[in-house]
Amino acid sequence: MSTPAAAPPLPIHTAIDRPHFALQFDDYHQQYDACVLGMWVFLVTEVMFFGAIFTGYAVYRMLHHDAFAMASNELDITLGTINTFVLLTSSLTMALAVRAGHVGNSKRVGQLIVLTMILGATFLGIKFFEYYHKYEDHMAPAFGLPFEAPKAVNDAGLAGPFQLFLSFYFGMTGVHALHMIIGLGLLSQFLPRSSRIAPAPGAAVLSALNIEVVGLYWHFVDLVWIFLFPMLYLIDRSDTI
């Protein structure tokens, strides 16, 4: 139980006389604070999880700058930009959904969640199209697939670091895509159910908390892409104009 300081007022519209909350908590505020803090601490572990592979990427980019620049130009920048745009929009719809959740307007929440999921799915679609495109060009450095770097890279003897870049590209965007899929799974719990099932007492209050927590996760996944996109796609495009 947090020290009985003056608890901040509940969002007005969701004040229900006996809010449903888990037994180990004493009141709704404590559960809310605990769940939000819990998600933030989990997001710190995710920062360190992605941080490890970013450190590896930073070290190799410093060691093989030219090879990484050449390899980065192989990535399709238009698809990357569209993907970033899609993800930023999904971040907006998620934020609006969280706001609607607090206001208690569950119909609007359902619509915005569906919109966010569509945008998330589009992002994954574009991503897997890019993977397939790489697979076609024999530039997927995994499963022992035939891997030939373009002629210029091979002549320059930079095929090794070229493949290293693509390994990091597939590694980082693959882990990010996995987190997107988990995010879509978490979001699916807010899809508008058929009206026959009566919502459990206090469900609206709890769903506001759940949306806030899932929203934090979704924004984090968007944050990772905000850093991934320039790091991987935009190393040095000046000579490709």
Binding site: H64, D66, A67, D155, A156, G157, L158, G160, P161
Partner: peptide, 13 residues
């Protein structure tokens, strides 16, 4: 082993 990693000034890789 990786000649064009660092090309001397004035030469082609």
């Amino acid at each position: 082993l990786r000649p064009t990693a660092k090309v001397v000034a004035g030469f082609q890789p």
